[in-house]
Design a protein around this nucleic acid. Sequence first.
DNA 1: CAATGTGAAACGCTTCACAGCG
DNA 2: CGCTGTGAAGCGTTTCACATTG
Lengths: 205, 205
Amino acid sequence: MKNISRRTVDRALIYIRTLEHLIKEKRYLVSSKDLALITGISDVQIRKDISSFGKVGRPRIGYKTAELNKTLKGFVLQENVVHVALFGVGHLGTAILRYPAFNEDNIKLVAAFEKDKSKIGKKINGVRVYPVEMAPKIIKRTHADLGIIAVPASHSQEVADIMVLSGLRGIVNFAPASISVPKSVIVKDIDFTIELLSLFCNSQR
Amino acid sequence: MKNISRRTVDRALIYIRTLEHLIKEKRYLVSSKDLALITGISDVQIRKDISSFGKVGRPRIGYKTAELNKTLKGFVLQENVVHVALFGVGHLGTAILRYPAFNEDNIKLVAAFEKDKSKIGKKINGVRVYPVEMAPKIIKRTHADLGIIAVPASHSQEVADIMVLSGLRGIVNFAPASISVPKSVIVKDIDFTIELLSLFCNSQR
DNA sequence: CAATGTGAAACGCTTCACAGCG
DNA sequence: CGCTGTGAAGCGTTTCACATTG
């Protein structure tokens, strides 16, 4: 029930994902050691994370999967559905629109934006594609919280500016270039090239 | 010239990406403060990172972009081309195969693997699609270093097992499920759902 | 005994403060 | 002065060691 760190929240999301899988398999109990084996996170770390949300485990027995899942979700997600706007409907953008896991998991793609006129007006997996100029209006109307940048690096900054202007509070940036935003907006960069090169460098020792 | 941490290597890759952009714009000099403004990383952090590769900057002047880029690349990449194998040629896998930035950046996709027979034998963006059973043979033949998991979570563990068996030393896992591998193999998880939820949780404070 | 829960120690990373240099 | 380079301090996170519990 203490101050919950960013890292703890991120791991909590992994616990939730794991627990939902275990619940589907009709598993009722799980120990921190079991979770450690599945997730690769240390058992002490897991107990420490979980205990920061309250005392829900029982010595000698472990945690009830459903109860623990409910507790964690209550703290980190609070039954919210996250509304997301996508910028860029190229190969990657389309793959994101068709990503199956979003449906179940508290995430709703509310709109997509594109420059290329041949794509505008279409619906992909139920999501309408709009011209970029309409972003501020549509984002406000749909109450989008977060945005995804899936446009080429050469246009990522101008898209980021529109996102900030539209009131989005967080950005996942798939473009291989840094973007500048006010520090009230959180950015998570995912550059496929850097992820691979990082892995390679770190596997070389 | 000291012990270079994992975090420093990751940031070095960002510096390299930024420097190559600056070099393309014919910029010859850059200060740590300039780089800080572009990347969002603090100027002290940047100087500390760079100095761990040697003294290449000049007080009052800054760093020569081309020289710094060469130094960083020399340490972290050593002119290697990273050979990557892709598992899963669905929407995401196809987007990865068509990802434009790989061509320039020391990364070569050497093979793709699929279960679905209708996709096998095709070439996408110059990369041949093979049946999964051929993975160990093809991976050895092509000297692949790393693998990407872009299959559904329900098959991610069996694919991971094949990757380990084939001798891959690092895995980027896009499936929304944890995988178990020997600790000699490094895993980088990228779960779109978790990235978005994490961003949302952390933007709520 | 086999599990959770937790203060304290250890560790790694970032920031501070400032020396050095042209 | 304006920049790099760096030892030391500060901070956050993980691990250790162990008390606690049914």
